[in-house]
Structure formats: structure tokens, C-alpha cells
Amino acid sequence: MTIKEIQDELIEDFSFFEDWMAKYEYIIQLGKELPLIDESHKVDDLLIKGCQSRVWLHAQYVDDKVFFTADSDAIITKGLVSLMIKVLSGQRAEDIVSADLYFIDEIGLKEHLSPTRANGLVAMVKQMKLYALALNAKR
């Protein structure tokens, strides 16, 4: 699936929820389903700068695609990083770098996050794009 197709699917998924409490529950559920990051990747070098919570993000390049794993010590943040991984992991580096992540606004995420969480989300996206750029440059 393309990044656009995944975003459209997420927008549709979120449209089923009546209110923001239900949407938060869904985000938390996604966080619980996030595949565990290897403990060896829970190092300070892999912490996302700009996140209030501790968020570890690891990226690797396999068969021309970038795959991400992550973890967080905060349940809602873990859900947010899980959303980003759902959209960007397994995609080509060029597609990640140029992705317009419109689903964030479409599902109303930005206006329902605290300013610190919204900043953390921006930092997550930036870090994922930087990893994709760096991994692409190395190949």
C-alpha cells in the first residue's frame, strides 16, 4: 500500500469514532499493538529530541525500503508513534521524505493534542524523514 492509501484508510478508521475519547482509546490500542523495539535500541542516541516523553525510534533499510520500530514510556505517545510507523514503515525512502502527512490534520489530531505532544509529533515525523534521508544516502 502507498503512504496515501494508508492515510486514507486511517482517516476512514477514525471517522467511525463518535468523540475524541473513543479516538484516544483507539490510539492507545494501536500503541499496545506496536511491535516491541529491540532492547539494544533503547539507547540515548535513538531518543527523539523534542518529545516530552521518552521515545526511542530505530530505522533500518531492507530491500530498498525503510522499516521503523519504536517504543515510548508514555502510552498515548506510544500510540502516536505507532500511527506514524503504520503510515511510513515499509515504504521507499524517497516516498517517506516527500510524504505529505495530511491524515494528522484530517483526523483532527493536532487540535486535540497538548502543545507539547503536538511538538513531539512534529519531532517524530522530522526524525523519521531524517532517518529515511540518511539511510537512502548510505545505499
Rank of each mutant, 00 (worst) to 15 (best):
S15V: 00
M21W: 07
K129G: 09
K86P: 03
L101E: 03
I104C: 02
L34T: 09
D13N: 14
T2W: 12
K49E: 15
V55M: 08
C51K: 09
D95S: 14
F17L: 04
G120A: 07
H41S: 14
P35V: 12
I28W: 01
L135C: 06
D100H: 10
F67E: 06
V125P: 01
Q127M: 14
L36Q: 14
M84H: 03
R117N: 04
V62C: 02
A99Y: 03
A118S: 13
S53Q: 05
L80N: 04
I107R: 01
I3K: 06
L133F: 05
E12A: 13
A93C: 03
Y131G: 06
Y24S: 05
A22R: 08
L109C: 02
T77N: 14
D71N: 14
I37L: 14
K49G: 12
M128W: 05
L130D: 10
V125Y: 00
I28Q: 01
D95K: 13
A134M: 08
S82P: 08
K32V: 03
W20C: 00
N136K: 14
K129H: 04
M128F: 09
N136S: 14
D38S: 13
A93M: 09
R139F: 01
S15H: 06
Y24H: 05
V66M: 02
Q29R: 15
E94G: 10
I28N: 01
S89I: 02
Q60G: 02
I48P: 13
Y61G: 07
F67A: 08
L80A: 04
T116N: 13
V62S: 05
Y102L: 07
I85S: 00
N119T: 09
T77V: 15
